[in-house]
Amino acid sequence: MTDHQLPDDDLPCVLVVDLITDYLDDALSPHERARLEEHLAECDDCVTVLDQFRTTITVTGRLASDDVDRLDEPTRAQLIGVFQQWAAGRPG
């Protein structure tokens, strides 16, 4: 866990945005988390930005369904060839 040396008074938005990924990863100390949530309860703009980060993560996740990265037949055959050659050369 990282100690962020947060200021004693109200957390400024400029610090809040830097903590978003730590917050979503649950990597803040309980104290830091409480401070951040206090700020979010009062600041609609930071909530907007937090929502945008969450949406960004979801949208990025959609890139996983890309067919161009599936294993194609020639590559499959080639890699099985590599495996069989390796297996045949093993002792025992």
């Binding site: 400024p12 938005c13 609609d44 907007t48 949406t55 949208v59």
Partner: peptide, 18 residues
């Protein structure tokens, strides 16, 4: 007046990017 706070309001995305 509020150092380190937003100087202009953040605009939520109008379209749902998902």
């Amino acid at each position: 007046e509020y150092p380190g706070h937003w100087s202009t309001p953040r605009t939520p995305w109008s379209e749902d990017p998902v």
